[in-house]
Each structure stands twice: as C-alpha cells, then as structure tokens.
Design a protein around this nucleic acid. Structure first.
Lengths: 231, 231
DNA sequence: ACCTGAACACCGTTCAAGT
DNA sequence: ACCTGAACACCGTTCAAGT
C-alpha cells in the first residue's frame, strides 16, 4: 500500500523506559493517581503488563521517575540577582508543576536520597540560605523549613485531587468549602467564619508566595534563630 | 462453669464504630498503612470483612476517622500566654502525634471541610494570627502558611515510613542518608555536601520548631506582607 | 535481549442469606 | 438491626514460553 518512496516504517511501538514514563504521565494527568495501572499502561502502549517490568522495577519506581520527569523543567532555572528572588522562582517552579500535575505532590516527600528532585530543590534553597548570611549551623534547618513549606502545599494539592477527582470544577469546590466554613458555629470557629468569604476568592499562587515571603522575612529579621528563652 | 456470682459475660466482641477505629489504629501503628486491610481488620475483630461496612462507609472514611481519633488528644490544648507560645504548642502537638503515628501524615491534607482535625488546627492558628495584629485581609494567607508548613513536615514523616517500613532503625537511616549526601559531587551539590554531617545529628523536633519560629518572626517583622516591588 | 499473556496472591466492596 | 462469608471485579507482580 505504501509507496516505495517512504522508508520502512520505524516500529512506532518499540518500548523504552522513556516511552513508558511519558505514557504514565499522560495517564496520571488524565485520570489521576488511581488511573495509573499496569494494565491500562500496557493497553496504551499496546503490550502486555509484563513487558513494562523489563524497563521499570515496579510501580513505586515508575511513579518516582514520572514525578522527576514532570518536575525537571522547573528545576533548570538559573540563579536570580537576589537570593530572595531565586528562592521565589524555584518555589514557584515547583508550585506551577504541581498545579499542572497534582499527583506530583504525593511523590515529592520521602527519603531525599531516593528522590533526586528533592535533592535538587533542597540544594538550591540551601545555597540561597547561605547567600543570605545564615551561619553554617543554622543553614540546614532553615533550608528544610523552606522545603517543608513547599512540600506541604504540594501534598495539599495532591490530596485535594485525590479526594475530588481530576475533572472537578475548582471554583465550585472553593465555593462549597467557603459555604461550609460560613455555616460553622461562630462561637467555636470565629476565625474560619470570619475568613470564609475571603478564602473562596483568594489566589492560590499569590498565597503560596505569601508563605515564602514570610519565611524569607523571618530569615532576615534580627535574630530569628536565637531568641532569648521566655521564662 | 462460671460461678453464679459473676454477671452474664458481656459480649466482648460486640462491634462498634469506635472499636473498629481503635483496631484500625493498632493495625496502622503495627504494620503501617499497607497493613490496614479489611480482612486483617476483620480477623482482629473476629468477624468477616463485610461486617465492618455496617459501621463504616469505606476505607477512606475509616482512615480519616482513625487520623482524627489519633490526633484528638493533641487538639485539646489551651491557649498560652502569648500567641507565639500557643502556635508552638499546637504545632508541637501535631508533630508529636505524627511522630507517634506517622500514617496520620498521609491523612492530614485534603479538603478542609472533610477533615475536621484540619479545621480545628487552622482555626487555632488563625486565632493566634489575629492576636498578633495581622490585618484581616492577610490572616487567612498567613494562617495557611503555618498550616502548610506543619502539613509538609507531617507528609514528609508519613512518606518516610511508607518508604522504609515501620520497624526501620531511625539512626541507621539518617546515617545512610548522610553518607549519600557526603558522596555527592561537591561542585554541583556544595550545600548538601557541606551539611551532610550536621543533618545526621540534628534533632527533628527542634528543627521543626525552628521553622515555626521563622514564620512567627516573619509575621512580626516590619512589613512582610507588602514589600516594595523590586525592579 | 526483549516481549507476551496467563496465572498467582492479593485487594476493596457487595450482597444474599442468616440471626 | 446487625452479622456472615462467599463472590465479584479488580490490583501488582511473576514467569514460562515465545521471538
């Protein structure tokens, strides 16, 4: 059927670790964490489930690799003028990636040496903390604080998707949540009651940055790491 | 056999929602998240798996309830003199609970209205933020920052247990992690290489508090929430 | 070396049938 | 009302057999 001018068709379906990871990412984006199945993955790659195990150790390793791959573009940013800006850019890079692929949030935490992406982020944060003049003994604790904050937002995002499904209307969910808060007893929940309307209109990204700026402000504030002991 | 003086033995095995939750917590503490199975739970309660569904909607709800139950003692603390101390106590309460039951860390995040425990924590944090004099428009963002930090540490703890198992030697893992960092190329990972030895000896609890104090310092520092735009 | 797909040992959940 | 346990519809993973 094909004219002789066209070259022999390259086997489109040749399996490879990268093709598997890419297909896994598509599946995760489409159907969420519950959608990633060796059977579904095999179907998408038109093979049997066993074939995947030749290229990938197990599901855990596949998830880690998928997260690292989806996060990679965000980790190539260059240093900015100020340490503060570099931290903000790095944090926003992670935030935006997790926003685009919420399932990453469930894969970010864990033993750092088993998560190359986390090592990269922590290294970058640590370098900026050093540039900010934090004494060596305190650098690890402070860089970890930044990382844990980022991690918390990411975990939150992942959990939200897990609980409401991939194709949920974000605005509708926020509105429902706001309504639930509004209905709380103002006597026992004065704060939540008060902020209920503001929470439904807030910008997640901006709010995320507020937290980063708060920690940055804490770092450069007079002596955050050796307050006098209160009696 | 039993002497007539003893009352008719109360059915020790009467099922109830609370007994199911308690058994689930035991199972989770003993074997971790993978250990909680309806079959294992049924065996421990000496019934069939179907019986549990009479008292509990599904596994997700059971996990949520177990987390709320294990977290409850930490949520009853009274306000301290200073808002800062109240935040520290509340945060440490969550931290210690997650330390004792790492699987809680995987259950904390998610839509707040579906997680009563999270609502309680956020409410308490928000009240202290208000007491600190933060203007109303900024309270929600700042209380969320505190919550997200706490959440990040919790998620990290849960992920660590998931990846290394319940009965792993904490010191040995830290040592291995430290060694891995030490072996990183100092040219591309100067920070991690530098702090590798310090990280293996740090106190998790103290480091957690450092992060809290950092955010608290940020809150009370001059104008953290409206910095002049950098050019 | 790489792929196939049936088979194994599990899951969560349902539901007819019992008490 | 509450419990029982077999059955259903899935999983991740393995492995003999193929190419």
């Amino acid at each position: 059927m094909a004219p002789p001018t066209s070259p022999a068709p390259r086997r489109e379906s040749a399996l490879s670790r990268q093709r598997i990871i890419d297909a896994a990412i598509e599946l995760l984006d489409d159907k969420g964490e519950v959608g990633l199945t060796f059977r579904a993955l095999a179907t998408r790659l038109s093979t049997g489930p066993g074939a995947i195990y030749w290229h990938v150790t197990n599901k855990g390793e596949l998830l880690t690799a998928a997260a690292a791959s989806a996060l990679a573009p965000a980790l190539t940013a260059r240093d900015q003028d100020t340490p503060q800006d570099t931290v903000r850019r790095a944090a926003l890079g992670v935030f935006d990636s997790v926003r685009a692929h919420p399932w990453i949030g469930g894969q970010l935490a864990g033993p750092a040496s088993q998560r190359p992406a986390m090592l990269t982020i922590l290294e970058r944060l640590g370098q900026q903390v050093s540039r900010l003049g934090v004494p060596p003994e305190e650098r690890f604790a402070i860089a970890s604080a930044l990382l844990n904050y980022i991690l918390g937002v990411a975990a939150h995002e992942a959990a939200n998707q897990r609980h409401v499904g991939v194709d949920a209307d974000r605005a509708a969910i926020l509105a429902a949540e706001s309504l639930a808060w509004q209905r709380l007893d103002p006597a026992t929940y004065p704060f939540l009651h008060e902020v209920s309307d503001r929470m439904s209109t807030h910008d997640d990204r901006e709010q995320f940055l507020t937290g980063i700026d708060l920690i940055l402000a804490g770092i450069t504030s007079p002596t955050p790491w050796n307050e006098p002991d209160a009696p």
